[in-house]
């Protein structure tokens, strides 16, 4: 794996047992994703997008082949090393924000840094920086229930970005948002990708997202059926 490659899969296969047999969710996937890419895994439901994100995010392991993420092999990685990889290097953005309702915006964004045992002052600065990136410094004391859907997803982005991870995995991040909020969110992620050189990998079938992608990897029935660099 060269220095610029952040994700590399080699003959990646994922099978799930079903009844007496099994279902192949990913079949012989070979991919290279470089540092700073803004890439999407695009395909219909059941095409293997989320399974791919699971393996790259070290939440699941391959049945065959391997995935190297930031130089770490995901095959047989073990729960503890997988946690450490996610904790230090990977940010997650989910469709439904998943903010902790009892904590303020500041505290929700602060949480990943607590796991990294950063000092109080470093934490405070990092959280405020992250909230500035997403334009929510005025909402630090707000609770999630006081935020709109768009604001909530921006908090989720700040939470994913606050530790300045090398890789952000986003699963259908705009599925619950209207068009205007979706564009705002995507512009924010695009900006962060350009300014911080963070690699973004999306799983989506939303046209609004696809329009922002710089590389689109098409998946169908667990296979890569297309890989296209988009010229802007």
């Amino acid at each position: 794996m060269d220095n610029n490659t952040i994700i590399q899969t080699d003959h990646l296969v994922k099978r799930f047992p079903i009844g007496g047999g099994h279902f192949t969710a990913l079949e012989d996937i070979d991919l290279r994703i470089g540092k700073g890419e803004f890439t999407g895994l695009v395909g219909p439901s059941g095409s293997g997008k989320t399974t791919m994100l699971n393996i790259i995010g070290s939440l699941d392991d391959p049945s065959e082949g391997d995935a190297q993420v930031l130089g770490t092999s995901i095959k047989n990685i073990g729960a503890r090393r997988a946690s450490t990889l996610r904790k230090k290097h990977i940010g997650f953005i989910f469709q439904t924000y998943n903010l902790m309702p009892v904590y303020t915006v500041f505290e929700n964004v602060e949480f990943p840094l607590l796991l990294l045992k950063m000092s109080d002052s470093e934490r405070k600065k990092a959280v405020m920086d992250a909230l500035e990136w997403v334009g929510l410094t005025s909402k630090v004391k707000s609770k999630p229930k006081q935020l709109s859907g768009g604001e909530s997803q921006r908090v989720a982005i700040a939470r994913a970005m606050v530790k300045k991870p090398e890789l952000v995995l986003a699963d259908e991040p705009t599925a619950n948002l209207d068009a205007e909020n979706s564009h705002n969110i995507l512009r924010t992620m695009e900006k962060l990708n350009e300014e911080l050189n963070t690699t973004f990998l999306f799983a989506t079938h939303d046209d609004k997202v696809i329009r922002y992608l710089k590389r689109i990897i098409y998946l169908e029935d667990g296979k890569v059926v297309g890989d296209e660099q988009v010229k802007k």
């Binding site: 995010g57 946690s83 990889l85 904790k87 940010g91 997650f92 998943n98 902790m100 949480f111």
Partner: peptide, 16 residues
């Protein structure tokens, strides 16, 4: 359930 899942996803170990 959601909170625990999120914590696992962002890298908190089960034991923690």
């Amino acid at each position: 359930y959601g909170e625990m899942g999120l914590r696992l996803a962002i890298g908190e170990h089960k034991g923690h």
